[in-house]
């Protein structure tokens, strides 16, 4: 019997390592899930004189997409979002994280603007409140202003169609 122990330990180790292989240490679970989204009051990217607050968005289901013109993987994600809003009744707000207005505006003109409004977070303070550590990040916020989902890293068409879109549709049915 005892001669089987090394084999058992070996397979135990293999199981551990196999699971570890498929876990991304960069995906840190957000403590915000199920909690009210942090408040913000930010100016519009295209209009510094207009401020949008979180309270104004209550009653709507929306995606809050954190992006920046300096962010390389945002370029991959962007067409996915542009396509998504073109075909579906969904509200996406952009959070332009630590960026400059001219560069961000030019970026949207060049690549298309999927946002109902882009909010300008120049010093990244709202980003800190949302626990942003790797742009792009996307939050889904329900009608009561509660964070229901967080995606770190670019949204792929598969993730959007299989996870995000069905979730948004369900949340839109909630009262």
């Amino acid at each position: 019997m005892s001669r089987f122990w090394p084999l058992a330990i070996f397979f135990g180790l293999v199981a551990f390592l196999y699971v570890g292989l498929h876990r991304d240490p960069h995906e840190v679970p957000s403590p915000l899930l199920g909690k009210p989204a942090p408040a913000f009051a930010l100016t519009r990217l295209d209009d510094p004189s207009t401020t949008i607050t979180k309270d104004q968005l209550l009653g709507h289901v929306y995606m809050l997409n954190v992006w920046a013109s300096w962010c390389v993987s945002c370029r991959d994600e962007h067409p996915v979002l542009v396509e998504y809003v073109r075909k579906h009744p969904v509200e996406i707000y952009g959070l332009d994280y630590k960026d400059t207005r001219p560069e961000a505006v030019a970026w949207l003109e060049q690549l298309g603007n999927p946002y109902k409004a882009a909010l300008f977070d120049s010093d990244g303070r709202v980003g800190i409140d949302y626990g942003v550590y790797g742009v792009p990040e996307t939050f889904i916020i329900d009608k009561k202003g509660v964070v229901r989902y967080k995606q770190t890293g670019p949204i792929s068409p598969e993730v959007l169609m299989n996870t995000l879109a069905p979730m948004i549709e369900n949340l839109q049915k909630e009262s």
């Binding site: 840190v28 679970p29 957000s30 403590p31 915000l32 942090p38 800190i128 409140d129 949302y130 626990g131 550590y133």
Partner: peptide, 8 residues
């Protein structure tokens, strides 16, 4: 910090 970034 933990409210925003978790125990991590």
């Amino acid at each position: 910090m933990t409210e925003r970034y978790g125990d991590f």
